[in-house]
């Protein structure tokens, strides 16, 4: 069993995805256990974002199975997947730029109707990111890159997900902010949310992750505990910038 020995929360088996004629995922299998941080690392175009988009239901796999908490989600619509408890802060943040920060955060809770709990989660997000509280009435399009990333993560958290998927959360941020983001991710995980993290910054990702997968041209080429991957020669050479 895996490092923490938890129950499997998300399982992908031999998932194949096509963009038109392009074979983007050529059979991806992975597993995220309850309470873990799992990271997907790989080069540009390896299929990391495609994997997350497929899990979120934006893309349909041609073959393969996807199970979340024991339920088949291959045919589920994206709104059902959110309801099951999977939320994503997508690559490039994808905020609603002409809506305010508060409205963006509220959109994260679109599927929920428990007003009181939403308010509590909103407070929690403001606690994590005090900057968002200051800027809540501001249009999201006017935020700085770091603030936008905070808003995107906060928005995903407002879905109160069991599995939070983060796509390149540190991209384009200053080193200070990168530290802050990784702290927050670890923090969120400690509070009980499982995290599937896609990162270019493999070193940092493997530091906080329990387990990691290496994706190369649409295939999983390595899967192991984060500690094992950190010491793997190939990973060190290709993704950790050591030779």
């Amino acid at each position: 069993m895996t490092a923490n020995g938890g129950q499997p929360l998300l399982e992908l088996e031999d998932v194949q995805v096509f963009y038109g004629a392009i074979h983007a995922l050529k059979g991806v299998s992975l597993r995220v256990d309850d309470g873990q941080i799992v990271t997907l690392i790989g080069a540009n175009g390896a299929g990391k974002s495609t994997t997350l988009r497929t899990i979120s239901g934006l893309l349909r796999p041609r073959t393969g199975s996807m199970r979340f908490d024991g339920k088949d989600i291959v045919r589920a619509s994206s709104q059902r997947i959110v309801r099951f408890g999977i939320a994503q802060a997508p690559e490039g943040r994808q905020l609603f730029s002409r809506m305010t920060v508060l409205e963006n955060l509220e959109m994260g809770a679109f599927q929920r109707s428990d007003r009181r709990e939403i308010a509590a989660d909103l407070d929690r997000v403001y606690e994590l990111f005090p900057r968002l509280a200051e800027r809540q009435a501001q249009k999201a399009g006017t935020l700085s890159g770091g603030e936008q990333q905070m808003c995107a993560i906060g928005r995903a958290l407002l879905a109160r997900p069991r599995l939070l998927m983060l796509d390149e959360p540190s991209m384009g941020l200053s080193p200070n902010l990168v530290d802050r983001i990784f702290e927050v991710i670890a923090d969120i995980n400690r509070q009980g949310t499982t995290v599937l993290l896609v990162e270019q910054n493999a070193a940092r990702a493997l530091e906080i992750a329990d387990r990691g997968y290496v994706l190369e041209t649409g295939r999983v080429t390595l899967a192991d505990s984060a500690a094992a991957l950190r010491s793997n020669e190939r990973v060190r050479a290709s993704y950790l910038g050591e030779s």
Binding site: S56, I81, V82, L95, F96, M107, F110, R155, A156
Partner: peptide
């Protein structure tokens, strides 16, 4: 409004 501004992100919100 969310759909008008970013259709994919709207899907991700459910």
């Amino acid at each position: 409004r969310a759909t008008a501004q970013n259709r994919d992100a709207a899907r991700l919100m459910g």
